[in-house]
C-alpha cells in the first residue's frame, strides 16, 4: 500500500506528534458522535481541522475537514462515515519528511 508522503517545515517538527495525536482523538470522537448523530459537534470538529490542517502543512486535512463540515450541515450520515474512514486511512499511512520549502 502506498504511503501518504507529506513535506513539513522542520520548524514545526516538535509540534507534529501532538498534532497527529489530536487528529487521532478527533477521529475517535467523530465515530462516537456519528453514532449519536451529533451533527453540530461533528461540524465544529470538521471546521477546526479545516482551519489548522493546512497551517501545519497537511493540506489534505483542511480538505477533508471542509467536507466533514459541509456534510455535517447536510446531516449526511453515510458520507460522513466514508470521510472518517478516509481520515483513518490517511493518518495510518502517513510518512512525514521534514524539509525547508
Amino acid at each position: 500500500m502506498s504511503k501518504n508522503i507529506v513535506y513539513i517545515d522542520p520548524d514545526l517538527e516538535f509540534l507534529i506528534p501532538q498534532f497527529l495525536e489530536n487528529r487521532e482523538e478527533d477521529r475517535q470522537r467523530l465515530e462516537k458522535l456519528l453514532q449519536e448523530s451529533e451533527f453540530d459537534q461533528i461540524r465544529i470538529i470538521g471546521h477546526s481541522m479545516k482551519g489548522s490542517g493546512g497551517g501545519y502543512g497537511f493540506d489534505y486535512l483542511t480538505e477533508i475537514g471542509s467536507q466533514i463540515e459541509k456534510n455535517a450541515e447536510l446531516k449526511n450520515k453515510e458520507e460522513i462515515k466514508n470521510l472518517i474512514d478516509e481520515l483513518r486511512n490517511y493518518l495510518d499511512n502517513l510518512e512525514i519528511i521534514y524539509q525547508k520549502e
Partner: peptide
C-alpha cells in the same frame, strides 16, 4: 479556541 492553532501561532 483551537489548541492546535494556538500552538502553531505561538511557535
Amino acid at each position: 479556541d483551537d489548541r492546535d492553532m494556538r500552538k502553531l501561532l505561538e511557535n
